[in-house]
Simulated assay, not measured.
Amino acid sequence: MILDRFRVTDRVAVVTGAGRGIGAATAVALAEAGADVVIASRTESQLNEVAARVAAAGRRAHVVAADLSDPAAAGALASAALDAFGRLDIVVNNVGGTYPRPFVESTTDFLEEAFRFNVATAHALTVAATPALLESGGSGGAVVNISSIMGRVQGRGFLAYGTAKAALSHYTRLAAVDLAPKVRVNAICVGSVLTSALELVAGNEEIRVKMENATPLQRIGSAEDVASAVLYLASPAGAYVTGKVLEVDGGLQAPNLELGLPDL
């Protein structure tokens, strides 16, 4: 059956930023599809809640509370997976993010910090995981990077974040060539998704309606929308896909949230 191709039974995944939002939904989706997961973020209490959802799906979760803005901490998750489960087949580089900031306040340090958190952490984990991913059987190892619509469209205030996410998208294409044919590397270009980070603005009904009206599919995305795409790219269903950036953004061709920053 075609649905069997979406199974990842007895495979092992690492999901960063897994305490809430897209990371949590992804960890649970992979567990429901048959995988054991290493879940990592700063807040252990959140991770324990996700681990309980993984256990309810009949799979195992290994919790790692760490500051993943440090590339070394991200890279160490590969060893954590091998120690906990003896293998590693799937890496989901979800951790990242950068607050908007006006152009003249976007210092070089701020830009470097955005690059480190969104790109260097993904690279550190992917490099550390590569030996295990090369040994993965079946459809091979898989890496899925979580990028953003702001890496391909224009919007004031997003210079550091958008530049870093654009770099992550192209990193995906380049790494896919380096790691082919045994390891597939893809990314998801995410639009507005209703996570805790967006709830601050989407909780305002006027702003939420404006965002929905500016989106062709007339709604804000859910974490499960992204998790479903991760499962496709990480599973045998996506076995003939590598070096691609899948846009899961409701059809956006421009930001659906303007910050209202004035001309200089």
Rank of each mutant, 00 (worst) to 15 (best):
L30I: 08
M211V: 07
E113D: 06
G137K: 15
V91N: 03
A13D: 06
A167Q: 05
A237R: 00
F6Q: 03
G140F: 00
I188T: 04
R7Y: 11
L111Q: 09
V153N: 04
T195G: 01
V248F: 03
D70C: 04
R184N: 15
Y240C: 10
A52S: 15
P71Y: 00
A129N: 11
L82C: 10
R184Q: 13
S192P: 13
T163H: 01
P100K: 11
D225W: 04
A56L: 07
A18K: 06
A18C: 03
E247T: 07
L133V: 10
R11V: 09
L252W: 02
H62I: 00
E224Q: 12
A237G: 15
S41C: 09
S192M: 14
H62W: 00
K210V: 14
R152F: 11
I220T: 03
S45A: 14
A167I: 02
G34D: 09
L194S: 06
H170Y: 11
P236Q: 01
L133W: 01
S196F: 06
A175Q: 12
N204L: 05
T121S: 02
I188G: 04
Y171V: 00
S106M: 04
G23H: 07
N256C: 10
G23E: 05
M211Q: 06
V185A: 05
G155Q: 09
M211F: 13
A214G: 08
R101W: 12
L246D: 15
T126H: 14
A129L: 06
E199K: 02
G191V: 08
H123W: 14
R11T: 13
G138R: 12
K182W: 00
G23D: 07
R59H: 10
L246I: 10
E112W: 11
R7S: 14
T98V: 02
S235G: 12
M1P: 01
L198N: 11
S235A: 12
F158R: 04
I39Q: 08
R7A: 14
F117S: 13
G58D: 13
A80N: 09
N186C: 07
E224H: 09
Y161N: 02
G250P: 10
L3T: 12
R101M: 15
A122C: 06
T172F: 11
E212H: 09
P181M: 03
V183G: 14
V201Y: 14
M150T: 02
R173F: 11
G19F: 03
G141E: 00
A31K: 07
V91G: 05
V209I: 14
T108C: 01
L252Q: 10
T121Y: 01
V183Y: 03
G260P: 06
I2Y: 04
P100S: 09
E212M: 14
G17N: 05
T9Q: 11
F103L: 13
V226D: 02
K244I: 15
D89G: 15
R116A: 01
L246M: 14
V248D: 09
G250F: 08
E49H: 05
N145F: 05
A254C: 01
F158P: 01
A122L: 10
L217E: 09
H62P: 03
N186H: 00
V245A: 05
Y171M: 02
G58H: 11
D10H: 07
A35K: 08
R20M: 13
V127P: 07
G221C: 09
G238V: 06
A180T: 05
L261R: 02
A35R: 05
